[in-house]
Amino acid sequence: MTAPSDVPGTAEEAGAEAQPRRADAASRSLRQIAWQRFRQDKVALTGGIVVVLLIVIAILAPLLVKFVGYPPNQFNQAPIDPLTGGVLNDPNDPTSGIDPWGGMSLDHLLGLEPVNGRDLFSRIVYGAQISLLVAFGATVLCVFIGTVLGSLAGYFGGWVDTVISRAMDIFLAFPLLLFAIALAGVIPDGAFGLTGNGLRVALLIFIIGFFNWPYIGRIVRGQTLSFKEREFVEAARSLGASNRYILFREILPNLITPILIYSTLLIPTNILFEAALSFLGVGINPPTPTWGGMISDSLQYYTTSPHFVIIPGLAIFITVLAFNLLGDGLRDAFDPRSSD
């Protein structure tokens, strides 16, 4: 007895089913393929969600504090032990002992700051504004300078490449932290039309962005050296395209992906650098809250009020981890060698 000709699973039907899948894959753009890969990476997707949530919290900080917390610089001495500066378990009973969690409650979601009694939730939320503002601003400046100089060095070569590459070496060998401490210490309270913390934010963005551009500049230079030898660039050159056209219309669009990926990995580095400067006392001026400044203030109370050092430390840790996971996920999603 012969087998029926319409038995499921035959080679002909398998090939017929595979053809639409191949056609669908061929019709998808690189962006669509990368988005599909990124969605399949649950860890990177979680990091992206946390990053978006942090940005929303920073933008809506005044609104959140208005409905949930208290003004970040409002003192509250009632629950503070006058002898140790810690937060009492019972504000009405001075003998109730120190609460190691700083009086966390529905009124104060993350507890109170020792000595001054300021609301930690409000200060963490406002601290996110400073950290993300400095990190994003410095990253934009760094990416702009690195992309311009790196692409010029890679495309033109010769003495242009030599000069820019040697400048990269000088900046990479520069003691950035020491320079930042020295510069932040000598700048007066008012300069360049700015005063107070507005000047400090601009100064931090300039220092971090201007002196970190060689890292992305080297990546852009290497990618430009590779792209300028590709067939599409040779074709544009053979048709009489100018150097400006080739750089802006042929090479730079292909640099967007590596620049985007490296930027997401550069932002957490800038967050840590801003926190380090604030920790050392040369960043944002108090009483404006910053995560690094809060950790610096908490060191003398870590035995009686450990929440004061744990909470801002966790804020930095979660933010940096989220950006790193997002950057790793984007790198894997846009890597053409990854499996679809």
Rank of each mutant, 00 (worst) to 15 (best):
A3K: 15
P4R: 14
S5C: 11
E12F: 01
E13Y: 01
G15V: 08
E17L: 12
A18F: 11
A23Y: 14
A23D: 09
D24Y: 07
R28W: 15
L30K: 07
K42F: 03
K42N: 06
V43I: 08
V43K: 07
A44Q: 15
A44I: 07
A44H: 08
G48D: 00
V50K: 00
I57V: 05
I59N: 01
L60F: 03
A61P: 01
L64H: 14
F67P: 08
F67R: 06
N73Y: 06
Q77F: 11
P82S: 07
P82E: 15
P82D: 06
T84K: 15
G86F: 07
V87D: 08
D90E: 14
P91S: 12
D99C: 12
D99S: 04
P100C: 08
S105Y: 10
L109H: 03
L112H: 11
N116M: 10
D119P: 13
L120P: 02
S122R: 12
R123L: 10
Q129I: 05
G137Y: 14
V143C: 13
L149Q: 01
G154H: 02
F156R: 06
F156W: 12
G157F: 13
G158P: 08
T162E: 09
I164E: 01
I164G: 11
S165F: 06
S165L: 14
A167V: 06
D169A: 13
I170F: 04
F171M: 10
F174W: 12
P175W: 11
L178S: 10
A180S: 09
A180H: 02
V186I: 13
P188A: 05
P188L: 03
P188G: 06
D189T: 10
D189V: 12
A191V: 07
G193K: 05
G196A: 02
G196S: 13
V201W: 00
I205K: 09
I207R: 01
I208H: 13
F211H: 12
P214N: 04
Y215H: 08
I216Q: 00
Q223G: 05
E231G: 12
E234C: 08
S238T: 13
L239T: 09
Y245W: 13
I246R: 14
I246C: 04
F248C: 11
R249N: 11
N254F: 03
P258V: 04
I259H: 04
Y262G: 05
Y262I: 12
I267S: 07
P268C: 14
A275W: 00
L277R: 03
S278A: 06
G281H: 05
W291H: 13
G292C: 15
G292P: 02
G293K: 02
I295S: 04
Y301G: 15
S305Y: 10
P306H: 10
H307D: 11
F308C: 15
P312V: 07
I318G: 03
T319V: 06
V320N: 03
L321H: 11
A322W: 00
L325F: 07
L326H: 00
L330E: 00
R331E: 00
D340M: 15
D340A: 12
